[in-house]
Design a protein around this nucleic acid. Structure first.
Length: 661
RNA sequence: GGGCCCAUAGCUCAAUUGGUUAGAGCCCCCGGCUCAUAACCGGGUUGUUCCUGGUUCGAGUCCAGGUGGGCCUACCA
């Protein structure tokens, strides 16, 4: 029950400034770690920064700074962002720290001792933005990286390799034995099917830049940034380098505690495949779970610098407060799904749930009825003499507490909050049904006290259950209840389970409403200040695609057909493409000044020599495309059925280049 | 090409894993209340559970096929 709990966010690349995507991951990690602490578990929450790599080295140079000075400068906004958001991390790892570098080298040696590292030549395209090699087929037209749309570079170097191929089966066995290793399940399936295809050895060193951790014993090489980065989860705790004198490492990694890595879905492969393989090789225990969450769009659009909707958390925190933003993150989108950050929606949830729901419940009881009729004090009631309707609310609270706890443990934050709001709603209903204001007028003091106590105690429960998500607001709520701030203590489970924790006679306090409602003009000015364009009359939801539009005609226009430039061409040369099963490389004369190179996937059906001299029909204006590193400047038409494939030709020797129509 | 996931009210999502009449929230309309932040409470409207078939006493749930969407992966010209 008191197993240690270790949760991490990804380490963010310092080249960026913090945005709500980073904030979302970090808040989630903060929420689970706060929850674990409330349950009395020792918890450690790690976040940090990835500060190495070619991109940083270059950026620093551009700015005329030493790399270390550059990253120092870029690190500051992250630290302050997490502070503003109330993310109380225990550790903040930076990959340039000596402790981290030592541990990366220690990991390297452990992997080397296992015989999993060897030296070989490597040549391929490299994208500086991704910090990774790209295969030909991934590249866009003109050798552009598909992610960054920037040119990749041809890099040939001697490189150390990790025998990832040896871990295909061990990984599959591990997945089999740990069916919850990756969440959500659909993502786990993707990981498994990727591994089942068989893994190739991984290049894990670079000589093309210096800004990284030197390979032990071969300082010409720098450790591959992903190996470097993944190691942070262990190095932050002291790691294998500090063997025997790293109490955090012993407590949170080497114990039987839970280790949860929260990651974005884009970096799942590194965490679910490479990282466990590295650890297996080094003989270090594996994490318990990798949780891949989705992406946030902003008002329905993908967040990007070029679109100008790159959203830093700072101004939002300023406008709404950290807890409101945290609440919105956790409430709005199912963890694991993609979601949308929508300002309008945030305001609706704020007014509808926080202000009208929870805030008003608190206000109507504490600042009004209890204050006016009970002298602002928690009444003394006999819990055994409560009425049925009181017990129903208590039962509801009990159920909510249990359910919400389970949901948070499963990182289903939206469900947890859903459950908790059912209780808020039930409590408001309870107040309406019991009508304490009438009891006050009727001088039915005993009943009035019972009703007020029941609501006050419900509020106390809520102040605990919502604490992981809204720590500040919950402590304010507690202050108004006359209670001390929550102080999680190891070995003590504070999660609500016993009714009656609120002491009779406690003096409640009235203060400003917890969540003052925004009226329309306030909403407008907030949105204006944030620079959000608001559609006047509820701009119709993204028009998506209407079903009717999708049903296109079965026919195409003649004009459509004439767009296709079909021509007769004569095959001049033909050869098999090396290492390819299906492709033939053809040089054809299409009546143009230069011959064309066309790749055709017909190698299984035609021998190259049988094609030379034949007339074929080609699509001449097809956009060129690279296949196996060779550009194909057109397409050879062929018909196929179960028995095979047959190239289309002409039955007279028409001139090369003749149009076909 | 191979694979995975999904499809439920106008929107966002539930449905105890095959069990009664498919439910919430938001939105909209009507009513009540007046302690409260114009808050709260009640009532009302909206469904071919994507389609077709199958298994079953019983299917939103399981099976087959199809359609549409998302994702992973691949030498699709």
């Amino acid at each position: 029950m008191v197993r240690p709990f270790y949760v991490t966010t990804p380490i963010y690349y310092v080249n960026d400034r913090p945005h709500i995507g980073h904030a979302y991951s970090t808040v989630a990690a903060d929420v689970v770690s706060r929850y674990a602490r409330l349950r009395g578990r020792p918890a450690y929450f790690l976040t940090g920064l990835d500060e190495h790599g070619l991109k940083i080295e270059r950026r620093a140079k551009e700015e005329g700074l030493a790399p270390q000075d550059f990253v120092d400068r870029m690190a500051a906004p992250f630290r302050s962002a997490w502070e503003e958001l109330g993310c109380a991390h225990d550790g903040f790892i930076r990959t340039t720290s000596p402790q981290h570098r030592e541990n990366v080298q220690a990991l390297w040696k452990l992997m080397q001792d296992s015989g999993d590292i060897y030296l070989d030549d490597y040549e391929d395209w490299y994208c500086v933005g991704c910090e990774s090699f790209k295969t030909e087929k991934e590249l866009l037209e003109g050798n552009l990286c598909p992610i960054h749309q920037k040119p990749v570079e041809r890099i040939k170097e001697r490189s150390y390799f990790f025998r990832l191929s040896n871990y295909t089966q061990p990984l599959l066995d591990f997945y089999e034995a740990h069916p919850d290793f990756v969440q959500p399940e659909a993502r786990f399936n993707e990981v498994k099917s990727f591994v089942k295809e068989g893994l190739r050895d991984l290049s894990i060193s670079r000589t093309s830049f210096r800004w990284g951790v030197p390979v032990p014993g071969d300082p010409e090489h720098v450790v591959y940034v992903w190996l470097d980065a993944l190691m942070n989860y262990v190095s932050a705790l002291g790691g294998p380098a500090e063997q025997g004198k790293a109490p955090l490492y012993d407590e949170f990694w080497q114990s039987s505690g839970t280790i949860t890595h929260i990651v974005g879905k884009d970096i799942l492969r590194f965490h679910a495949i490479y990282w466990p393989a590295f650890l297996m090789s080094a003989g270090i225990r594996l994490p318990t779970q990798i949780w891949a969450h989705g992406w946030l769009t902003v008002n329905g659009e993908k967040m990007s610098k070029s679109l100008g909707n790159f959203l830093p958390p700072g101004p939002l925190v300023e406008a709404f407060g950290a807890d409101v933003l945290r609440y919105y993150f956790m409430r709005e989108v199912g963890f694991g799904h993609d979601g949308d950050f929508n300002h309008r929606n945030l305001l609706n949830r704020y007014n509808g749930e926080l202000a009208n729901g929870l805030g008003n419940l608190m206000n109507r009881i504490v600042a009004s009825i209890v204050k006016k009729s009970l002298d602002g004090r928690v009444p003394n009631v006999d819990l055994d003499s409560l009425e049925e309707i009181d017990r129903q609310l208590i039962d509801k609270a009990s159920a909510a507490s249990q359910q919400a706890g389970k949901h948070i443990e499963a990182l289903a934050f939206h469900r947890a909050l859903d459950t908790i709001w059912e209780l808020v709603s039930a409590a408001n209903k309870y107040v309406d049904s019991t009508e304490p204001w009438k009891l006050a007028k009727q001088d039915d003091k005993t009943r009035l006290e019972q009703v007020c106590y029941t609501v006050l105690e419900t509020l106390r429960w809520l102040s605990v259950m919502l604490f992981p998500v809204m720590p500040e607001k919950c402590n304010e709520l507690r202050e108004q209840l006359g209670m001390a701030p929550l102080l999680p203590t190891e070995q003590v489970d504070l999660w609500p389970s016993a009714w009656g924790g609120l002491r009779a006679g406690t003096r409640t306090k009235t203060a400003t409403p917890l969540f003052p409602r925004f009226d329309e003009s306030q909403e407008r000015s907030i949105l204006e200040r944030l620079g959000v364009e608001v559609a006047p009359a509820d701009k119709k939801k993204a028009p998506a695609m209407t079903e009717t539009e999708q049903r296109k005609d079965e026919f195409i226009e003649f004009d459509d057909f004439t767009k296709v430039d079909l021509r007769v061409a004569v095959v001049k040369e033909a050869e098999k493409v090396e290492k390819s099963k299906k492709l033939l490389r053809l040089i054809v004369d299409a009546g143009e000044t230069e011959p064309r190179q066309i790749l055709a996937g017909i190698s299984e059906h035609y021998a190259p020599e049988d094609l030379i001299g034949r007339r074929v029909v080609i699509v001449a204006n097809l956009k060129p495309r690279k296949l196996m590193g060779l550009e194909s400047q057109g397409m050879v038409l062929a018909a196929s059925d179960e028995s095979g494939l047959s190239i289309l030709g002409v039955d007279k020797d028409v001139e090369p280049g003749s149009p076909a129509k």
